Simulated scan of single mutants.
Amino acid sequence: MHYTLHQLQVFLKVTEFKSITKAAEELHLTQPAVSIQIKNFQNQFPIPLTEVVGRQLFVTDFGEEIAAAARKIIAEVDAINYKTMAYQGQLSGKLKISIVSTGKYLMPYYITDFMNMHPGVDLEMDVTNKTRVVRHLEKNETDFALVSVVPDHIAIDKVRLIPNKLFLVGGRQHTYSGKTISKKDFDKLPVVYREKGSATRAAMENYIADRKLPTRKKIELTSNEAVKQAVISGIGISILPLVGLKNALSSGDAQIIPSKGLPITTHWNLIWQKSKQLSPTAKAFVSYLEEHKTALNEKHFGWLDTY
């Protein structure tokens, strides 16, 4: 057999996404290039690695076994590279961070300078909802999690970052009477929700239930960005984290609708299991955040204080 590391990497992406197209996008390759690599890899095995049923790609049981072996090979290669860098005096290793979807507006600003300072550090960042983030943490599948609501059933350590303010938001088209929105006005406007499992969804449901607000029509979307675009388009109103609204508010495409009991304020925290043995790379990142977070907060998120 003469398979290459590149073929292993391509095959792993295909098994992860169950899609040639999505794997190509993730690897920044063309779809034909990925297909050729998969074909060349498959030609070295007498048993199918994948199969297509209908229009859906599935990984066979044999393919799953090969994928598991490929992960171990790639991990060993990474370990060789990291050890080489360590002997050269460079900080090296992989950081695994699982973040809730709104966290994509924050984490790049907290980690970019650290990554630039340490080119031997690789980043693997999964963006999903709160339920899955906590599950990753519980299963020790990630080093850190970025959340706005800290789970209370896990013993954790944390670095507190910035406040997370949630406001009622509408598009430029929405009007309301009075200084704050009334129940009557609220009843006229469809409400756009995040999917179940989202901390933003939970906060919105609690707010609406506590104030016994009417909801004429409910629309459910699977990311804060999708909700924001729906709000901007005028399809409805929603409660959204302020941190993702900077451009929309500045341009006037979105507006904060005054409402009693808002904003809801929590805090963004980078958390990890208290019992976890952090790698030297992970420890270095924690130290970096503790030393630089105040300056980073002022530089990138000072605008939050105007709301």
Results as ranks from 00 to 15, higher is better:
His153Met: 04
Asn164Val: 04
Ser182Arg: 03
Arg71Val: 13
Thr281Asp: 00
Leu245Ile: 04
Gly93Ser: 12
Pro151Ser: 06
Ser182Asp: 07
Arg216Leu: 14
Arg132Ser: 13
Lys184Val: 10
Leu189Asn: 05
Lys130Asp: 06
Ala69Lys: 13
Gly171Trp: 08
Thr60Tyr: 04
Met117Ala: 15
Val192Glu: 09
Pro46His: 01
Glu141Pro: 00
Leu91Ser: 02
Pro119Glu: 00
Asp210Glu: 09
Ser259Pro: 06
Glu225Lys: 05
Leu240Glu: 15
Pro46Trp: 05
Asn206Arg: 12
Leu240Asn: 14
Thr175Val: 14
Thr175Arg: 10
Phe285Ser: 12
Asn164Trp: 07
Val77Pro: 03
Ser275Asp: 09
Leu242Lys: 00
Leu249Arg: 01
Lys130Phe: 06
Gln7Leu: 04
Gln31Cys: 08
Asp122Glu: 15
Asp187Met: 14
Glu220Gly: 01
Ala24Val: 01
Asn116Ser: 06
Ile181Lys: 01
Thr60Ile: 03
Gln42Thr: 09
Ile74Thr: 08
Ile74Arg: 11
Ile257His: 07
Asn140Pro: 03
Val243Ile: 15
Arg194Met: 04
His153Trp: 05
Val134Tyr: 01
Ile97Leu: 10
Phe114Val: 06
Ala24Leu: 11
Ala230Gln: 07
Leu245Ala: 06
Ser35Gln: 13
Arg71Asn: 12
Asp126Glu: 09
Lys39Asp: 10
Thr102Ala: 15
Tyr109Arg: 12
Lys276Met: 10
Asn140Trp: 08
Tyr207Lys: 08
Glu124Thr: 04
Met125Thr: 12
Thr222Glu: 13
Lys183Tyr: 02
Asp122Leu: 04
Leu5Thr: 07
Lys94Phe: 00
Trp268Lys: 02
Glu298Lys: 09
Ser19Leu: 04
Ala248Ser: 15
Gln255Thr: 09
Lys179Ser: 11
Val52Gly: 13
Asn81Arg: 13
Ala202Asp: 11
Phe11Leu: 02
Leu91Trp: 05
Leu106Asp: 01
Trp268Ser: 02
Thr15Gly: 14
His174Lys: 12
Glu298Thr: 03
Thr266Ile: 00
Glu141Phe: 00
Thr142Asp: 11
Leu249Cys: 03
Ile219Pro: 04
Val191Leu: 14
Arg132Asp: 14
Ala79Trp: 02
Leu296Ala: 11
Ala226His: 08
Val150Asp: 02
Ile36Ala: 14
Asn40His: 06
Pro119Val: 03
Leu146Arg: 10
